[in-house]
Computed example of a mutant assay.
Amino acid sequence: MTPQVIVLNGGSSSGKSGIVRCLQAVLPEPWLAFAIDTFVDQLPASLRDSLAGIGIAPDGEVSVGAEFRRLEAAWRAGVASTARAGARVLVDDVFLGGAGSQDRWRTALDGLDVLWVGVHCASATAAARELTRGDRPPGMAEKQATLVHQGVTYDLEVDTTHTEALDCARTIARTVTGPDGR
């Protein structure tokens, strides 16, 4: 099976975005990248820090409301349509709902070949990266480090605690292309 979609799930600051950029460089075919952070950035201001939208508490706790879920479902359907139209797709997501989040993606991606990748990172390492980034409230990475993996099943798991994004991407690429790189 050569996947049409690769879904990477991991907590904040776990290294998913870096792996996605490296995958785009090392995979032999072009792959489009879709990230939950980009989706959140596209939301109107009225849905930020809102009960209907997305709220991020000072301690890093994330909550989402009904309107966020509705728009997120439309986004997932659009990502799936892009893959069904013939593009290879990389998804960078944070499964705040663990297995429930994966189930929503499974429904959207039904009929497509998907490679599910868990991106792990020790909570202390992710928290240090979070501080360096400066664009997330302290505590988010630590809260999400294990939460996002609860009940989720993967085809492949990588750990960025001591492994660079490029090496993780090469591991994933070997799973996609086989050992000969084709």
Rank of each mutant, 00 (worst) to 15 (best):
T2Q: 12
T2I: 15
P3N: 09
P3E: 13
Q4N: 15
V5W: 06
I6Y: 08
G11T: 06
S13M: 06
S14E: 10
K16A: 04
G18W: 01
I19Y: 07
V20D: 04
C22T: 09
A25S: 14
L27C: 00
P28S: 15
E29H: 04
P30V: 15
F39R: 01
V40M: 14
D41Q: 02
L43G: 09
S46E: 15
D49G: 15
S50M: 00
L51G: 13
L51M: 07
G53A: 11
I56F: 12
I56T: 15
A57G: 04
P58S: 08
G60H: 00
G60N: 01
V64L: 00
G65T: 14
G65R: 11
F68R: 02
F68S: 08
A73H: 06
A73E: 14
A74P: 04
W75Q: 12
W75A: 11
R76K: 12
R76D: 12
A77C: 05
A80N: 09
S81M: 03
S81N: 09
A83C: 07
R84E: 11
R84C: 13
G86I: 13
G86R: 07
A87C: 13
A87K: 00
R88D: 10
D92K: 02
G98H: 03
G98A: 03
G100V: 07
S101G: 05
Q102R: 14
R104C: 02
R104V: 06
L109M: 06
G111S: 10
G111C: 10
V114A: 11
V114Y: 14
L115M: 15
W116P: 00
V117S: 00
G118K: 07
G118N: 09
V119H: 05
C121Q: 03
C121V: 12
A122I: 04
A124G: 10
T125L: 07
T132P: 03
P137F: 04
P138T: 11
G139N: 01
E142K: 00
E142M: 02
H149F: 03
Q150W: 00
V152R: 02
D155R: 00
D155E: 08
L156D: 10
V158N: 04
D159W: 02
T160D: 04
T160H: 02
H162P: 02
E164R: 01
R170W: 05
R170I: 13
A173L: 05
V176W: 10
V176G: 00
V176L: 12
P179S: 15
D180N: 09
G181V: 11
R182I: 14
R182E: 15
R182A: 13
R182G: 10
